[in-house]
């Protein structure tokens, strides 16, 4: 079957790839573009480990097709830090010990960044509901919530 040629923007850089029509964006990112920071936890949109933004909108990359990405701007976890300078959320996750195994962490960070772009001053409840689509089995969410609230507070002061 002929592959589809796609031109898009990935973490601010022009990217092009060939994809089978059945390949998800998650498969393209991981298997074709070798960006394995975006994780597969379920492949059915239930766990949020594969969260990315497409044109600024938070999505599960396992639920979209690579072929749909023509002309789109995709942001993944690999684009979050500015060179060696970590994003405040990344730093706060480390300071608060908000990760244990860390496999949900890329998706949680992408989702949390998306929240703070919309709502720079969320309540604990708003953070909990926004992140309800990102499963974490290790932490019980405590330190994730604390890290997001702390990062938001620091970013507001900046």
């Amino acid at each position: 079957m002929a592959k589809v040629h796609v031109t898009a923007t990935l973490n601010g850089n022009a990217v092009e790839f060939l994809c089978e029509t059945r390949q998800t964006l998650l498969q393209i990112l991981r298997d074709e573009l070798h960006l394995t920071g975006t994780k597969e936890g379920c492949g059915t949109g239930d766990c949020g480990a594969c969260s990315v933004t497409v044109d600024g909108r938070l999505m599960c990359s396992c639920l979209i097709l690579g072929a749909e990405m023509q002309g789109k701007s995709i942001q993944t976890i690999e684009g979050m830090a500015d060179g060696e300078k970590l994003h405040p959320l990344q730093r706060k996750f480390l300071e608060h010990a908000a990760l244990q195994c860390g496999v949900c962490t890329p998706g949680v960070l992408v989702a949390a960044k998306s929240l703070l772009e919309r709502n720079p001053d969320p309540t604990e409840e708003e953070v909990r509901y926004w992140l309800a689509g990102n499963l974490c089995r290790c932490t019980g969410y405590n330190k994730i919530i604390e890290a997001v609230l702390d990062a938001a507070s620091e970013m507001r002061r900046a």
Binding site: M80, A81, Q90
Partner: peptide, 17 residues
Amino acid sequence: LRPDGVPKVTGLAQYGA
């Protein structure tokens, strides 16, 4: 801070898959 933390928040840590 955990010594293995940074690759886990930047997506560079390598898991089984």
